[in-house]
């Protein structure tokens, strides 16, 4: 029933069986569409690079080496993203996780966006109020939010390329302080807002934060940057296991 080949059961706005709609074939088709677009884009870019390379004194071998170096260095980070994505499969379904968490967005932004969207409908992400209709609303909000990044990129890139001076005059101190503070506040208030709900919510939040903090300290002490890469996935999976144990007490 969770397989993409299965026929979608009739949609029911009030059902909490999210995966019945989240794994629908249409959503799979859209996800595969995004995959194909990225493949086509990569092929076009590689072809263009191959044609331009000799003119800047770059051999085809050097281009191939660059491709391979990029591929190898992406292996670790990609598998780290896979780990996080798998943990969220039951919350958003496979197609949405592939597109939103695996590709365009990130787990932190998308989870926050879904929670904020659910809240505006008086519901919660993942609880008894997380119905098929709320999932649809959350996915719509996540996708529109993600679209804003793409639209900003489409509009700003040509402007920046022309060297638009107005954009470069933005006070760098504001750029340094405000977005960072806003992000930390968004995650902080969403996390702390979960604490009054039950002691198990406290366990979930605190164990995840503690594991992440420990991994960050270890990564710095033994100077192994890959630990930082895997920290998010490890923290989420371990603290889900701890939380599961807590629910059994």
């Amino acid at each position: 029933m969770n397989f993409p080949a299965a026929l979608p059961t009739a949609a029911d706005s009030n059902s909490t069986d999210i995966l019945a709609v989240a794994n629908s074939p249409v959503l799979w088709a859209c996800a595969i569409g995004v995959f194909l677009v990225i493949i086509v884009q990569s092929v076009i870019y590689m072809k263009a690079a191959r044609i331009a390379a000799p003119h800047v004194g770059m051999s085809q071998a050097e281009l191939k080496t660059s491709f391979r170096a990029g591929a190898i260095s992406a292996l670790g980070p990609s598998l780290a993203v896979v780990m996080v994505a798998v943990a969220l499969l039951t919350v958003f379904g496979t197609p949405a996780v592939l597109v939103r968490i695996g590709l365009i967005g990130s787990v932190s932004y998308e989870t926050a966006a879904a929670a904020i969207a659910a809240n505006t409908a008086g519901a919660e992400l993942g609880g008894p109020t997380y119905t098929q209709a709320v999932f649809g609303l959350a996915l719509a909000a996540m996708s529109l939010g993600g679209a804003m990044w793409m639209i900003a990129t489409l509009i700003l890139t040509p402007l920046l390329k022309k060297g638009d001076s107005a954009l470069r005059k933005v006070n760098p101190a504001i750029m340094l302080v405000v977005p960072g503070a806003a992000m930390v506040a968004a995650f902080m208030v969403l996390g702390i807002g979960e604490l009054p709900k039950s002691w198990i919510h406290v366990v979930a939040f605190a164990s995840s934060a503690a594991i992440m903090a420990a991994l960050m300290v270890i990564a710095k002490k033994v100077n192994r940057p890959w630990i930082k890469e895997w920290a998010l996935g490890i923290a989420i999976i371990l603290s889900l296991a701890i939380t599961y144990a807590a629910t059994r007490l």
Partner: peptide
Amino acid sequence: YILPTVMGAVV
């Protein structure tokens, strides 16, 4: 419990 779990680590 996905929301508190993700946010704990992300914060």
